[in-house]
Amino acid sequence: MTLTAAQPFVFTGCVELRQALDHRATDERELLERLEEVPAGSVFYHTHGYFLRHRPITTAYGNDFASWVATQVRDQVLAERLAVVNPFEFASLEHVREELASIIHDHLLRLPAVPRVEFGAPFYFQQSHIVEVSLGAGATTLAEFRAGLATVDASAIYFHMVEARARLGRRAGDFAEWIRTSLGMPELADGIELIDTYMTSLERVRARVLALVDGALEASPR
């Protein structure tokens, strides 16, 4: 274990710039067809990005596709099946796309007619561009990391725990990676890596990381 890291951890917040695409769906077959052709960034926006946008509100459906099917098409069966797709369990966005498409395809095979929007709104596909924002001078000890984590903007939790893993290829997430490689605390890193970021809020994720860090600080020699 290293008490002071040579490489400081710099918290990075993010701003999501949304871009509308020329793809929309008014029924579940169109949803399937468009889902298969939109850029991977759009799949990311409507699955992982859901957690950034729904910060203060309970994440009832887990992704935009399930939310639309539930609230606009009112097909609870498909909504439930889509809602349980945990995008964090997949190795790539193409795998997430494949899973979602396969569920919709399978669902449609069992129906005599394609459920469509009657009174609700169509599904509009979007994608996002992330603008990174460096926050603060950086932490070199676990105590400094804890102090920074407690007050940093919630978008930094999203950036280091979601964006870094799903879009930037840093599979362990930035918190766990830094704690493992710079502070030499593999057990704490493993604990943070195991935190389930699906179907929760960024504040709850922050609280869980803080609890693990507090435990490590209490256990460490003074």
Binding site: V133, S134, L135, D153, A154, S155
Partner: peptide, 12 residues
């Protein structure tokens, strides 16, 4: 504003 947002504005 939400906590941290003004700092994000200043950094941007």
């Amino acid at each position: 504003a939400p906590p941290g947002v003004v700092d994000i504005i200043l950094t941007l």
